[in-house]
Amino acid sequence: RSTELPEHLKAYKGVWVFIEHDRGQVHSVSWELMGEARKLADKLGVDVSGVLLGGPNDPLENYAKEAYAYGADHAYIMRDPVLQGYRNEPFTKGMTDLVNTYQPEILLLGATTMGRDLAGSVATTLATGLTADCTELNIDGRALAATRPTFGGSLLCTIMTLAYRPQMATMRPRTAAMPRRDDTRTGDIIRKDLGLVETDIVTKLLEFIPDANRNTVNLAYADIIVTAGKGLKNADNCKLVWDLARVLGAEVGATRAVTQAGWLEAERQVGQTGKTVRPKLYIAAGVSGAIQHRVGMESSDIIVAINTDPNAPIFDFAHHGIVGNAMQVLPALTQAFRTHLDKRVRKVA
């Protein structure tokens, strides 16, 4: 097969980020991607653009301003009543038209239920390569080198699309750092019409049922997480993790062994088949540190592990290790943090 870029595709220039938003909020993965897009574009010496599709009630121009602050030079805006609320069909048509008209060389989307749904359809329509669920993006030569974990994180592979454009990739939320915001940055807006009417679209969005616990479990963006592993022995002992989390204002995480045992809800699972997290502090109690768990939390700023086994794999990548019984250490740690935080509060007051 040919790995040469055909002449007619050489005109494709610039790095695009699909800005995912829903009910008044941009998904943070879009800004994480914007930061990565900026780095890629600087290496290539090209511009970064944010792509915004939405309905009459969506504040797309405000999102565009945020996009500039996070590194975009341009914003493509497509506004149409049929783009109110995500649906595959009109979004695929809109995105595909924009790509065909303005020809970006790289198109990045979040590896979310929206991003993956859209990316798969767009890549097939454009007959180009799409690398899924990446954890690292780079430039090799002039091409995108997209790296993703395989076989549960025990190996990584780098995938490239050489002879087709655009080069597409989806990236996992929380694998790239949030870029710094610079509100002095500005950019311009390019508008395009979709050219569809509601009767053209077969699929109807009947309703949106928000998750009841949406605001209670926000693991991916928590600053502090205390995670329960199977070493806690039973569901009752998970209370010790909750106690510590309450004192720290932290979220509670779980390994798959724990969610499968039904000790904690599935939404709390951290790892390859759960959430990717990058808190400032991650405390793992009774967690062995299996590779599938590690890939979901290893970019945390500080990792503390409590485990009875001095040879547990988690000590190979934790920053601070305590060899000991979690049922003893957790209450003591809760007390120590409580005292410490009380002192701080008193000092401020």
Binding site: T112, T203, P210, D211
Partner: peptide, 13 residues
């Protein structure tokens, strides 16, 4: 019913 970010979409097609 389709799982979306932060909720569930009910779709008819």
């Amino acid at each position: 019913e389709r799982r979306a970010e932060g909720g569930v979409q009910r779709l008819k097609t």
